[in-house]
Structure formats: structure tokens, C-alpha cells
Computed example of a mutant assay.
Amino acid sequence: MSDTIDLGAYGDGFRTDPHPYYARLRESGPVHRVLLPAPEAYETWLVVGYEEAHTALNDPRLSKDGTAIGVRSLDEQLIGKNLLLTDPPQHTRLRALVSRTFTARRVEQLRPRIQQITGELLDAMLPLGRADLVESFAYPLPLTVICELLGVPDLDRTEFHKLTREAIAPSSAESALAAMQELSTYFTDLIEDKRSAGPSGDLLGDLIRTRTEDGDRLSADELRGMAFVLLLAGHETTVNLISGAVHTLLSHPDQLALLRADMSLIDGAVEETLRYEGPVESATFRYAAEPLEIGGTRIDRGEAVMIGITAAHRSASRYPEPDRFDIRRDNRGHLAFGHGIHFCLGAPLARLEARTAIRALLERAPDLRPDGPPGDWLPGMLIRGVRSLPVSW
């Protein structure tokens, strides 16, 4: 076994700007044994090369279901099984059940409502002259959309944001446990209320009632797990995609000017943000179900593997001049939404929200500019984003 690299020893610089550290790791190989920074402080193999990450994301020997090797994650223990914690055939079954209700047509039908929410948020924000873009815009837009889609009551949404933020970017192990416990209780009660109330027309209500031709349906634990992963994936990542895109554009005035001059480049701006500074820094853990090699490194059965999405996206072998932000770049093949059978179901919704939000913001605030330094970067290695983004216009 190779020497373990303590990523926490890199200090705050690794959290603020991990790209130089990932570059040095890639120079010495595509796979490394690392100790994650606190609060995780967990040993794992970290994949930092693009080709190796692309292959590993779809390698059936890397199991998402830790119970296969005796590991049960906190969210599985307290919430329930979901798409991020299962392998075929269980994953195939769960994805098929969710896909019956979370369809491309349903996402497209959200377009007018997304535009309406975007407009209302800008109506409230723009007269102020300055704001924290995360708090006033990037956070409430996707949270409102996913809560309406799932059928989460209005009064719960502010508390939801605090709980989900602690669940995916915890300030401590204790806060993560407390957040998971509260979310578990909340979803149990919400599902029971919806089951008793009858058809509601929202996604969670439809998931409760959906059945396959042979009568298969989601169990109570599966419903709770599915609600949890849809909520987290449906808003936390999109919050940081929107704020990350604005932050990156403001940091690259030439690219911002290019987009302002030609709004048909909005798709390229969103996709390049996903590659250059995407909201998912690393994929959730996988476990070696059998011995295997990744990039010439032997991984023993039962060992944890983390696939570095942010690290892979700066591989020069895939993207020439990878540290250059270029909204006209051919960035096909980026891994921001995963790859293979675990490709994100919510990718069309995230793209729709980001394109709508960024375009409307730039059109209605033509002199948008930074209003001070951004807030701290979120802790942990799952989600990448800033806590606040002060802007003025």
C-alpha cells in the first residue's frame, strides 16, 4: 500500500483553491491513498485523473452499496436506501420507479414556473442595489422549485436549507448526525401525511402511489430515502451551480462580456462552469466489491474509493489548457452529473434552472459586479461552493 497523503495538512488553501493541489497529485499519478480533511477524516483512495475517473464511475466492481462489504452509511441508517446507495438489480428497480414520475415532460412543464420564480426574486432583489446573491437568488430559486415539485410545505423551507447544508457539508460530525435525524423524522411524518391525504399531484405524492405493472412499489424506507436524495440533489447542487457560474463569470470579465454580447452562449457558459468549477467536487463513496486496478494502482476488496470530479475536470489529457475558463470550449464528456447507470436524474432540471437564472440576472442587471470578497468555501469534499457572494449593480 502506498503512503497516505493527509489532505487536511494542506490547510485552508486546499478548501479555497484545491486545483493546484490536485494538479500536483495528477503529476505523480491518477490514484492516491488519502486522508480526507476534517470533519470526515476518513482514509480512502482518491481518483484524480480524467480517464480513470470516467472509467471508475461506470465500473460494476465498484459498489455503491456499502453493505456488500459490511459498511452502512449514516444516511442509509437514518434515512433509507436511495439511488446513491444501491447497485443493480436494486438500483435498476428504484430508478425505474422514480423515472415513471420524474419525467422529461414533467421537468419541461416547470419552465414557466421557473421563469416566474426567477422574475419575482429579481423584482425583490434589484431595487436594493446590492445583495448576497446566494441568500437572495441562488438559494431560494432551486429550493422553491424542488419543494413545490416534491410537495414540501412552505413553512418548512428555511429550516430545510439549514438541515440539508449540514447533511452534505457538515460543520462537525455531531451536526451531521443531528441533521440526518431531523430529516429522517420530517420525511417520515411528511410521507405519512401525504399517504393519508390522498392524491396531491406533486412528485412525492405520485411516488407514494406509483406501481409497476406487476404491482411493485416503493417501501416506506425507500420513499424516505428517495425524498431525501431528490431534495438534496434537487437544490444544494443547483444553488452552487448558479452562484458558482456568476462568481466565475465575474472573475473572468472577458468571458462575461462575451456572454453579454451573445446570450446564445448561455448553454456553453453553464456547461463550462460545470467543468471548471462545478458544484460536485467528488462523487459519493464507492467500495471495491472485488480486487481491481485503477490507473495501475491495486485496490483491495472492501476499500473505499472517492472519484474526484473537480480534479478530473482539470486533466490536460482531456481538456487543453484546463485551467482556462472558456465558455466556447468543447466541454463534452464532463463528469459533473456522473456517468453510466448513476448519471443524475435531475440533470435536465439543474440545467434549466441555471440557464434561466443566469440569463435573467445578466439581462436585468447589466452592470452586475462584485461587492466584496465571497464568503468561505463549504467544508468537506462533496459539494463545492461559497457560503455567500456579495454583488452590486
Rank of each mutant, 00 (worst) to 15 (best):
G11H: 09
I383C: 02
L218P: 05
T248R: 11
E213Y: 08
L57R: 03
E159K: 00
L177G: 10
L83C: 03
I242E: 05
G11L: 08
I266K: 14
G234C: 00
P30R: 05
L149Q: 06
R113Q: 07
D12L: 09
Y42K: 03
V145A: 03
D65N: 12
G333F: 07
D326Y: 06
V152F: 12
A9S: 15
R329F: 10
L190P: 13
A56L: 02
Y186W: 03
W377H: 06
P88Q: 15
W393S: 12
S28H: 06
S2P: 14
I5A: 00
S136K: 14
I69V: 15
A169N: 07
G346Y: 08
R15C: 01
D376F: 12
R301I: 09
A56C: 02
P89G: 07
D262W: 14
L349S: 08
A347K: 04
R301A: 13
S251M: 12
P89S: 11
H334T: 02
R314I: 06
P291C: 04
T284P: 15
S171Q: 13
R111N: 13
D123R: 07
P253W: 15
I383D: 01
G49L: 08
R387H: 00
I242T: 08
S171Y: 12
N58P: 00
P253A: 15
I299E: 04
D12Y: 05
Y42F: 02
D87F: 07
E290C: 15
I168K: 04
S99W: 06
E213I: 09
P366T: 10
D300R: 13
L150D: 01
M306I: 07
H252W: 10
A289R: 15
Y276K: 08
G302L: 08
L150I: 01
E271T: 11
G13R: 03
L85P: 11
M381F: 10
S175G: 10
G268L: 14
T86S: 13
L230A: 04
G234L: 01
P390K: 11
I309R: 12
P390Q: 10
D193W: 06
R318Q: 07
P112W: 07
D216M: 00
E120L: 03
I79V: 15
H339P: 10
D300L: 11
G49I: 04
L265Y: 14
F14Q: 02
A23F: 10
Q116S: 04
L36H: 04
L378Q: 02
I341P: 13
E303H: 05
T101H: 11
V386F: 03
P153G: 09
I5W: 01
Q109D: 15
T4S: 00
R260S: 15
A56S: 03
T86V: 06
V152M: 10
A124M: 11
D75G: 13
I307Q: 05
K64G: 02
A23N: 07
P170Q: 05
F14T: 02
A269M: 07
Y139T: 08
V31N: 01
D300Y: 07
T238K: 10
Y10I: 00
C147F: 01
G151S: 08
E277Y: 13
P153K: 09
P39C: 10
L349M: 13
V34I: 00
L150S: 01
T188S: 11
L223F: 13
P348T: 04
